[in-house]
Amino acid sequence: MSITPQQVDHIARLARLDLNEEERQLYSQQLSAILDHFQQLQEVVTEDIPPTFQVIPSQCPLRVDEVRPSLPREHLLGNAVDVVDNQFRVPPILE
């Protein structure tokens, strides 16, 4: 299962990861090897097998609609590097 560097670019874009040329090549190679190894999964018959999304079957518990105190604003903003007017600041979105 070969993952080309171009495919790596596409995945990196979807995941918002900057990769340098060396990484592109390395990951292309490593991901290909890994996915090759995973091809064996295709041999398993799973026609009528349901997927396991919850390993311990249970139902979604519902929370009573009550308001609890939010984080004091200093605690919310305290870990951020760029705060202006009590909001998180980011550079403009340029296309």
């Binding site: 202006v84 007017d85 909001q87 998180f88 600041r89 980011v90 550079p91 403009p92 979105i93």
Partner: peptide, 8 residues
């Protein structure tokens, strides 16, 4: 200056 602010 040009920037965006996030309010959650």
């Amino acid at each position: 200056q040009s920037y965006s602010l996030v309010d959650l």
